[in-house]
């Protein structure tokens, strides 16, 4: 009897044990190591390896790092907004069509996920080079002469990140929109609500779990993305992940890299929590929870 109940208690733990082990070995331990490094100076004045706040003081006391953090967050916000705007419309259509159209949309969403990220980005890279396909077309039309500097711009980066992350948003939003009861939309229509009002007062609140989940995913992927910014804006892009890489690989200053990484982690976690709390309050539901 005791043995059976003990087994019942342990069994669920066995299911989640692999995740716990993986998280501990490949997330918690490295992050703890990074955190401990961030509290050490690269060239300690007195005694090696002593506790120091010098890296955090350097970052927080320098406007340049604040601007860089601002750029990274702005990139995350913009990529999230565009991904949601495009993803929501596509997800709605996906859940309200059938046959070949549904297959086509699903395929269009899945293909970018299957294609290697570098291959996908190189397409954009070649397209938007200062003397690339777009420049040549505009030049042939006599509209511009000389280089187009789109490739290295913030908005080009937003475009590529949106392209990369829209499929994730669509898949999550579609699952959420599918759960919106059709009779509630029908009821709103019968009561005379306009399309925008149905969207604002019925659809958005009821699909909020999907919106929140996809926002968190796209935002955190965009803010912490290194590969896309380094290929699109190059090392001159003023974003935190590029700076983290520069400190770690070029300046061999893992302490500063650790401090920057930890600040980014804290900011993303705090913003995510605030977003979830705000969404809970705005929808006044509290029936679903992400925290």
């Amino acid at each position: 009897m005791d043995g059976t109940s003990g087994l019942r208690r342990v069994a669920p733990l066995l299911f989640i044990a692999p995740v716990i082990v993986l998280m501990a070995a490949f997330f918690a331990l490295p992050v703890a190591d990074l955190l401990s490094m961030s509290f050490q100076a690269k060239h300690p004045e007195a005694g090696a390896g002593g506790f120091s706040l010098v890296n955090y003081a350097k970052i927080l006391g320098d406007l340049w790092y604040w601007q860089m953090l601002g750029n990274s967050l702005a990139l995350g916000f913009c990529a999230t907004l565009t991904s949601l705007a495009i993803g929501y419309a596509v997800a709605w259509r996906l859940t309200h069509c059938g046959g070949w159209e549904r297959t086509l949309i699903a395929l269009a969403c899945l293909l970018p996920i299957f294609v290697n990220v570098i291959v996908g980005i190189l397409g954009w890279y070649i397209l938007m080079l200062p003397f690339g396909v777009i420049q040549q077309a505009l030049d042939a039309l006599g509209l511009i002469h000389g280089p187009l500097r789109w490739l290295r711009s913030f908005w080009a980066l937003v475009g590529v990140l949106t392209y990369e992350h829209v499929p994730f948003a669509v898949l999550i939003l579609a699952a959420s929109l599918q759960n919106v009861p059709a009779d509630k939309i029908a009821a709103a229509r019968i009561l005379g609500a306009s399309g925008p009002r149905i969207l604002w007062t019925v659809l958005l609140p009821l699909s909020m779990p999907g919106i929140v989940a996809s926002s968190i995913l796209v935002f955190s992927l965009s803010v912490s993305s290194y590969l896309v910014p380094i290929l699109i804006t190059g090392p001159r892009g003023q974003f935190i992940p590029i700076s983290i890489y520069s400190y770690a690989a070029e300046l061999l200053d893992w302490n500063m890299a650790g401090a920057l990484a930890f600040i980014l982690l804290v900011v993303v976690v705090v913003l995510t929590y605030l977003f979830i709390a705000l969404s809970n309050r705005l929808t006044r539901r509290g029936e679903w929870s992400m925290v």
Partner: peptide, 19 residues
């Protein structure tokens, strides 16, 4: 300026593309 490169491979690509 077209590009400030860190790796010569990036410069080689841009030369190859005629940029």
């Amino acid at each position: 300026m077209h590009t400030v490169h860190t790796w010569s491979s990036e410069m080689s690509n841009l030369m190859q593309l005629g940029e």
